[in-house]
């Protein structure tokens, strides 16, 4: 068990993908001119954490960690998959809350450009 857990990641690619997704998501947030688009970019940032977590738990030549019909053997790490599931739930909560806020803001201001709906200025 611990040998599986301590095995280093096999390839660099998923780590690069995660970093790329994180960076491009941040770029999208910084340059966005519409809040719904911005929330989508936040989703891209979050996707980078999915990739990262799954890459951490991935093992070559291993099966899904379900030992219902066959004897236990080499499998990918189920812990990170549970983490990703929780991450998805949290992401959905935050996205729903953000969209609700954005909807209310649109009702009051009639625009969703982050430049034009700034909070109170001193």
């Amino acid at each position: 068990m611990s040998a599986v857990l301590h095995a280093p990641p096999v390839t660099l690619l998923p780590w690069l993908v995660a970093a790329w997704l994180f960076g491009i998501g941040l770029y999208g947030i910084v340059t966005s001119r519409h809040y719904v688009h911005l929330i989508g970019c936040l989703g891209v940032v979050q996707a980078s954490t999915y990739v990262l977590l799954l890459a951490v738990g991935y093992r070559w030549n291993a099966t899904a960690p379900i030992f219902y019909s066959h004897p236990p053997g080499r499998a990918v790490d189920p812990v990170v998959q549970a983490l990703v599931l929780t991450d998805i739930v949290i992401g959905v909560t935050v996205t729903a809350l953000l969209l609700a806020l954005v909807l209310q803001l649109h009702k009051r201001k009639g625009t969703l450009d982050p430049e034009r709906v700034r909070p109170m200025q001193p």
Binding site: A18, I29, Y35, Q46, L53, V94, P119
Partner: peptide, 27 residues
């Protein structure tokens, strides 16, 4: 409307922070 845009700024910035924490946990 000011409370909503304040809450949006708060949510976006802090949610990015939460994803950073999650990435740190993964590492």
């Amino acid at each position: 409307s000011s409370a909503l845009s304040g809450a949006l700024n708060f949510t976006v910035v802090n949610t990015i922070g939460a994803y950073l924490i999650l990435a740190g946990i993964g590492l």
